[in-house]
Every structure is written in C-alpha cells, then in structure tokens.
C-alpha cells in the first residue's frame, strides 16, 4: 500500500460518515411514511367533501357506512375496521392452535432430520406470493366451502370472509410457528431436565414447563401474526369482496382497509380528490393498528424472562 497515513485516515473517516448516513436513510423512510400519512390524512379531514375539520372527524367515528367514492358520501371507518378484524380473527382461529402444535412438535419432538427437511419448506411457504394465495382462496377454498356447506342449507357467497381468513391463517403460520419455536428454544435445557427428573413425561414437560416459561415470547409471536393478518392485502382484495359492512357473518362479502386501498388505487386518482385522500385516512388507521400491535409484541418480548 502506497497511500500516506493521512490519506488512509481520511478514507477511514469518509467511509464512517458514508456508512452512518446510509444507516440513517432507514430513519428518513420511517419519517417519510409517518409524514405522508399524517399530511394526507389531515387533508382528508379538511376536505370540503367530508364536511370540513371537526365535522369530518365526528362523521369518521360515528357513521355506520363507508362510501367516500359515491355521490352520497358516508365516511364511517367502522365497516372497514370490522372487515379487517373479522378476517384477522378467522385467520387466528387457524393459526393459533396449528402454529402451537407445529412449533411444539418441531422444537420438542421432531428429530434433527425431520426438522431440517421440514424447515426449508416452511420458509418456502413464506415466499409464496400473496396474490397466489388469493387465487387459491377464490378458486379452490371457496368452491370447496360451497360444496360442503350448501347441502347443509348454508349459503356461501362467491366472495366471503371465511375463505381468505383460512388462507391467511395458513399463510402466517410458518412465521408464527418459527417465532414460537425460537421462544421455546430459548428455554434452557435444565428446566426440561429438572422436569424429567421429577418423572414428568415429554408432553407434560412441553405443556406445563417449557410453554409457560416461554409464554411472553409465544404471545408476542401471536400478536405479530395478528398484525400481519391485519396488513395482508392481496388475498382479501381477490377473495373477500368489495362490500364494506358491519357484519360478523363470515359467509358474506366484506371489505378490509387494505382491500379498500387496492380497490380505489386501481382507478384514476387525482392528487386533490377525496378518493385519493380517503385511502390515506384508511391507511393511517391501518398503520396505527399495526403499530400498536407491534409495539405490544416488542414490549412482551423484552419482558421475556431471561434465564
């Protein structure tokens, strides 16, 4: 190396500054997200079509219908929130028990060989494009549901909340299961051994010793899965319909926050239009929901007992 010591030092400092700047870019991205959501949401609430500031916010929280793109505009957010949570709850009904079973099995029971063969495929399940899951929900799961429920006198609409809910449940399962597995792996071996020494079976050890010891990690995994289900877009855009309504019936078409954003974004969107602004208001609600869930999950994880 023929560089002088001074030059080397200069390069060192320049590189440090460059790297730090690049690291800081991610912070700019976060600020940009919050800023753009906030600014356009404020523009939504001050837009004359919504009735101007205090009125629009009150309408947003009290009206029971969501039709900002219609001539007769109703801007109550609850039907979208209702649809979002309905789908997320259905998916959790699938993901909670199945995720726990898979995680406990892989972490406590499965041999090294089984685990090494199964895990790459679970990873692959995470890489399946969500629009493919949407196709599957609409054209495979829904017809099956119709075939089995129709003879019982239950009408299943072509667009419904149940089928995308089930599919999203399976979709978030690898993610949830691998986080639960990590939490279970974090439980020290000596707790298991102590339990075995007292004569407990493997099942008893897994369910009454390992699982309680890892409970905050497990809970945080579920919350993050729930948050994913809330933010999931393409499955619901394809298979859940475009009909925002306040219902708990999973067999009817509904609309989620994400589904609404996609529906409106597909059309032409002038920058100052009420349609354009409404997707930011809806997106802001979505962002807040996931932010709260993620923060609670992170808090729980940090509370996890260190052994």
């Amino acid at each position: 190396m023929t560089l002088s010591l001074g030059a080397k030092k200069a390069i060192d400092i320049a590189l440090f500054l460059f790297l730090m700047f690049m690291g800081a870019v991610s912070v700019f991205v976060t600020f940009a997200i919050v800023w753009v959501l906030l600014v356009d949401t404020i523009r939504f609430f001050t837009h004359p079509d919504g009735g101007g500031f205090p009125t629009s916010l009150i309408r947003f929280l009290t009206e029971k219908e969501w039709t900002p793109t219609f001539y007769n505009k109703q801007i109550g957010i609850w039907p979208l929130v209702n649809g979002t949570f309905l789908i997320a709850f259905i998916s959790m009904i699938v993901a909670v028990p199945l995720g726990l079973l898979v995680a406990v099995y892989l972490s406590e029971y499965a041999s090294w060989k089984v685990r090494e063969t199964v895990k790459p495929w679970l990873d692959f399940l995470e890489a399946v494009p969500t629009v493919v899951y949407g196709y599957f929900a609409l054209l495979f799961i829904t017809p099956i549901l119709q075939k089995f429920l129709e003879p019982l006198g239950i009408t299943v609409e072509g667009m419904n909340a149940l089928s995308p809910g089930i599919v999203i449940g399976v979709m978030i399962l690898p993610y949830t299961a691998s986080m639960i597995e990590d939490a279970l792996k974090g439980v020290p071996q000596y707790l298991r051994e102590a339990s075995y020494a007292l004569g407990a079976s493997k099942l008893r050890t897994a369910l009454l010793v390992v699982l309680p010891a890892a409970k905050s990690g497990v809970l945080s995994a579920y919350l993050l899965g729930f948050s994913r289900a809330i933010g999931e877009t393409m499955v619901v855009a394809v298979a859940a319909g475009m009909y925002p309504q306040l219902t708990a019936n999973p067999l009817e078409p509904i609309q989620t926050i994400t589904g609404y954003i996609v529906q409106v974004a597909l059309g032409d969107l002038p920058f100052d239009s009420f349609d354009y602004l409404s997707i930011f208001a809806a997106g802001f609600v979505l962002f807040l929901l996931t932010l709260i869930l993620n923060s609670v999950a992170v808090y729980l994880k940090s509370k996890a007992v260190g052994y």
Binding site: V29, T30, V36, T258, I261, A265, G283, L286, L291
Partner: peptide
C-alpha cells in the same frame, strides 16, 4: 419497526411521495 409495517403502507408512501 420498518420490518413490521404492512407492505401496502409502503405503497401509500410511494404514491404520496
């Protein structure tokens, strides 16, 4: 935090910014 933001919110960022 960014890792947990739903992908559609990135879409809103891109649309708005």
């Amino acid at each position: 935090n960014l890792a947990a933001v739903p992908s559609i919110v990135y879409g809103l960022l891109a649309l708005g910014v």
